[in-house]
């Protein structure tokens, strides 16, 4: 296994682009092929044959890089309140400091977020798989709150973009105060002067920073 710190920033950058292309369908940036050759990624065994497809090992390294990058963005945006655009830039720097152990700690602290501030999924780490939603988490899904409890919306983690959009277009945004009214038979919460009912599946995707 290659240790994170042995990858250069340039390598990490191009691996992330290849992964996004292969896994999420983003277009390849111009000049990708040249960079792959220049950095000798074929020789390192991360890219297959002479094409641009990642090998199994390359996929894994890239996946972890993406995970660190998006966790860094999440950390900056949610906890530091850094604007999205800057978060992106700082994240590029920060992700290199997130060695594997630290990334796990950050992920746990954030309550195992599933998407970055741009709405792209964060690949799961070992900690997410183990996490049986710890009670002490500062940030937890809406349906883990007690009825009557209040908090601030930390972020929305809906894998289907349409559902995420539904919250946003109704004017329910990260940073807004939210109060849980009840959990059964459906989840009811209050936001501003309105009440909303959602099913449990949607409620698990609203992450709330609890007042504690």
């Amino acid at each position: 296994m290659v240790h994170e710190n042995e990858i250069t920033e340039a390598e990490q950058e191009i691996l992330e682009r290849l992964w996004q292309h292969e896994v999420e369908g983003w277009p390849l940036p111009p000049g990708a092929e040249g960079e792959v050759v220049e950095l000798g990624l074929h020789a390192k065994g991360w890219v297959k044959g002479d094409g641009l497809r990642l090998s199994a090992g390359g996929l894994e390294v890239a996946r972890r890089a993406i995970r660190r990058h998006r966790l860094a963005e999440r950390l900056l945006a949610d906890l530091m309140g850094v604007e999205q655009e800057q978060a992106e830039e700082h994240a590029c720097v920060l992700e290199h400091s997130l060695v594997e152990g630290l990334a796990e700690k950050v992920c746990t602290f954030l309550g195992h977020p599933r998407v970055c501030p741009h709405g792209h999924p964060i690949p799961e780490g070992p900690c997410c798989k183990k996490a049986a939603a710890s009670v002490e988490a500062v940030i937890s899904p809406l349906d883990h709150m007690r009825p009557g409890e209040e908090g601030l919306i930390a972020y929305l983690a809906t894998p289907q973009n349409g559902d995420l959009q539904k919250f946003l277009s109704m004017g329910i945004h990260p940073g807004d105060p939210i109060a849980l009214v009840r959990k059964t038979p459906s989840v009811v919460f209050r936001c501003g002067h309105s009440q909303f009912a959602v099913d449990r599946e949607l409620a698990t995707q609203v992450y709330v920073r609890r007042h504690g």
Binding site: M170, S186, S194, F196, A197, D199, L202
Partner: peptide
């Protein structure tokens, strides 16, 4: 088709 999500404002 995907399972419908329930989301409704309670006036």
């Amino acid at each position: 088709g995907r399972k419908p999500a329930f989301f409704m404002e309670l006036p």
